[in-house]
Design a protein around this nucleic acid. Structure first.
Lengths: 237, 237
DNA sequence: ACTCGCCAAATTGCATGCAATCTGCCATGA
DNA sequence: TCATGGCAGATTGCATGCAATTTGGCGAGT
């Protein structure tokens, strides 16, 4: 995520490079591959990541792997300890709560940035996603759709730092969303779907304040739900 | 900043390493040195950073320098372009506005986290800083005191991600705060000082909501001030 | 049975060197 | 005069190899 939107196209004292992020970069590629593996749940929180393993797996030497791990550390997905190694980051209940409180304040802002760019086609697509979420029973499928729904609602925001920040917050809490989704009873699930629907309705009505408020409440509800299920953080791997 | 508070002490499937961040790490050390140089203004926005130069300057090879640059890229202080090089990041007016809007929402939250830990001694120290800011005429001194004041008011917050996030936001806007401070007329400066004083008063009264609101307004005022001075972003290096 | 200290294997940290790519300048031609 | 192509120097990207540190188990001692 980070690096996807460079803070600025470098224009400097010295001639600016062409801004074509070729990304033929081995370390960027590896960072993305490890990130995906973590988000998919292939690497689980607390699991150790050995440089040599990753290097061999992706056909590179340990140097670009180390750079990728630095990137992921800053993303909050990996915890590095000098001379000891790298582990997939874990969140304590308090830390997860912190991330959700941050999301509660920041995502409505990002949504506001996105609103001018949300057209009818986007709204229809969001409605579709709400329906698909209502119909699926598969946790992984739900997670994928939920992510598509929310990040999709932000997609038209022409931001640089804020979009990246929200992506990071989503990534660091991905595991706990997965565990929490498993615990959703039918009533809670219905509330979630209704809130999604209310969000789309507010967006369709051009009600920015309403949309912000629905979204904040939605995140808040999830945060409170998580705080009632500390067992989500027991990683009996 | 990032890495100072690992998301969590790694406790995992495999034996957990001792959490003593020895930081004898060459790349961490170099990241910090470059970060300081950027914040001091020694490297200016848009300036190119050559790996070999940094390596020689700090007595290391290019490998740890590259890792440090990756860290700083994720911090938003450096922009990397594959096969071309590293530049000190620049913010466009729109991006800076974005960062300030984010701060406006996030810093009051961090302040709320900090409040329970703010004792009388801290409040006295904050008052002292307000006085010192009133008295100084030196821009660098003011910047230093202002940073101490605000980050100091957050210091007792026992957070992990939120504290780091705020530090990052402060760092990426440091150059523009410096340029903006130069433009402050006497009236605006007085308003700033008064707001600082109001913040301490609210904190002393245990008025959390008031403190949050003063802080949000303070950041907002600065943001609007910046938007009236686009020349701050002309980097005639 | 339990603790402590030590040693070999495993792993990380980094310097070196070479290949790939880009930058900036100069020659060539319109 | 200006645009274009291409080459040499400079710079980045990465594989290799070695030194430093940690890990985990074994044995001595209590």
């Amino acid at each position: 995520m980070s690096g996807a939107h460079p803070i600025v196209a470098p224009i400097g004292a010295e001639p600016a490079p062409v801004s074509q992020t070729r990304d033929g970069n081995s370390s960027s590629r590896i960072a993305e591959l490890i990130r995906d593996a973590i988000l998919r749940g292939e690497y689980r929180p607390g699991a150790r990541i050995r440089q040599e393993d990753v290097a061999q797996r992706f056909g590179a030497s340990r140097v670009p792997v180390r750079e990728a791990l630095r990137t992921l550390e800053a993303d909050g997905l990996v915890t590095l300890v000098a001379n000891a190694g790298a582990w997939v980051s874990q969140l304590s209940p308090a830390e997860c709560d912190e991330v959700y409180q941050t999301r509660e304040r920041v995502e409505p802002l990002l949504l506001r940035y996105a609103m001018p760019g949300i057209d009818a086609a986007t709204l229809d697509r969001l409605d579709e996603l709400v329906q698909e979420m209502r119909q699926t029973d598969d946790v992984e499928e739900f997670l994928r759709l939920d992510r598509q729904f929310h990040l999709g609602s932000y997609a038209s925001a022409r931001t640089t730092v804020l979009g990246d920040l929200v992506h990071r917050l989503w990534n660091t809490t991905q595991h706990y969303r997965r565990a929490f989704t498993l615990l959703l009873d039918e009533h809670s699930a219905r509330v979630v779907h209704d809130e999604h629907h209310m969000l789309v309705t507010a967006l369709r009505d051009g009600d920015g304040t309403g949309a912000e408020s629905v979204l904040a409440g939605h995140i808040r509800r999830t945060r409170l739900g998580l705080s009632r299920h500390p067992e989500v953080f027991d990683l009996t791997d």
